[in-house]
């Protein structure tokens, strides 16, 4: 099908985009990899589509000692070729590799993926696991929301219609933090049946910090809080991965759908968690 008629507005700046959003029934188009199908299927019929593709201030990655700030309009493909990002936040780069396909990553943006809030998508869970903060702008000002409180349900977030996601900021993780990542999907590029993402930091022979979240295992990204607390303070050699996996599964809320039952997801999740944790702890002192 073809999209229903709408007014198209090419925003020239963040302020311009935000002013357009304040003026009524408007939707933002970033990479369009989710919005375009919704328009074509007429599941979305906005009066106005505000295009932020030409707003330079919404693009780019900056890495500092405090962490990593990524403009919402930064394309997924560009995150895969950013050398500074690869050094600073390997778990994010690993997760981006699993988002969609080569062709959709060439247009798709990190911001679009974050606000669409597909429960089985990689980016929201990565933001939750690594402790990211989302910067939302409206005509009324800026609001910073922790990723962990941003996701309310499937496709539902704390963002309101006149707000624009401007950037996502990840706190610094040391370069030697270990990446935890596993995704089980029917085909590459499909949404995950079960996914796990995060990082583990080891300092002086013990785990100093762990950030872990599931995707495809509940209505929102599910943070594995109990597993995180159980890991901190322990030496990698003393950890029984299957015990921690049990704690991690306790923090999920999977569902039955045509692809898999909740019980199947839990069972796969247990194994995936234990394997990913074991692999991360065995990594050689770096990512």
């Amino acid at each position: 099908m073809k999209p229903a008629p709408f007014d198209y507005v090419g925003a020239t700046s963040i302020d311009d985009a935000v002013a357009q959003l304040a003026s009524g029934d408007a939707t933002v188009i970033a990479g369009g990899q989710t919005l375009m199908p919704l328009l074509a299927l007429r599941m979305s019929m906005p009066l106005t589509v505000v295009d932020i593709n030409r707003v330079a201030d919404l693009r780019g990655v900056s890495v500092s000692d405090q962490g990593v700030r990524i403009g919402a309009m930064t394309r997924q493909a560009d995150l895969l070729t950013d050398a500074a990002l690869a050094g600073a936040l390997p778990p994010l780069v690993t997760a981006v590799r699993h988002v969609g396909h080569h062709q959709t990553r060439n247009r798709g943006t990190i911001g679009g993926s974050l606000v669409f809030a597909e429960p089985a998508a990689e980016m929201p869970a990565t933001a939750v696991a690594l402790g990211a903060t989302l910067e939302l702008r409206s005509a009324g000002g800026t609001r910073n929301v922790a990723a962990e409180t941003f996701y309310l349900g499937p496709y539902m977030t704390d963002i309101v219609p006149d707000e624009l996601l401007v950037a996502v900021t990840f706190p610094a993780w040391p370069r030697h933090a270990r990446t935890v990542f596993r995704e089980v999907a029917q085909r590459p590029g499909d949404f995950a049946l079960v996914g796990l993402v995060g990082a583990v930091e080891i300092e002086g022979g013990a785990i100093a910090r762990a950030g872990l979240a599931w995707f495809g295992m509940g209505p929102t990204p599910m943070r594995a809080r109990q597993a995180e607390s159980a890991l901190v303070g322990r030496a990698p050699g003393d950890i029984r991965a299957s015990e921690i996996a049990e704690l991690a599964i306790a923090d999920t809320d999977p569902f039955d759908d045509v692809h898999a039952t909740a019980e199947y997801r839990r069972e796969v999740g247990r194994r995936v968690f234990a394997q990913a944790l074991t692999a991360a702890l065995a990594q050689e002192g770096q990512a």
């Binding site: 099908m1 073809k2 198209y8 090419g10 990899q33 375009m36 074509a40 062709q103 959709t104 060439n106």
Partner: peptide, 27 residues
Amino acid sequence: CEQGVCGACTVIVDGRAVRSCLMLAVQ
């Protein structure tokens, strides 16, 4: 498919392979 699933509409825009059904012409 006109909804980004099949890839038949893939073209090269500014050196990158993209799905042309997921882009507005004005873009």
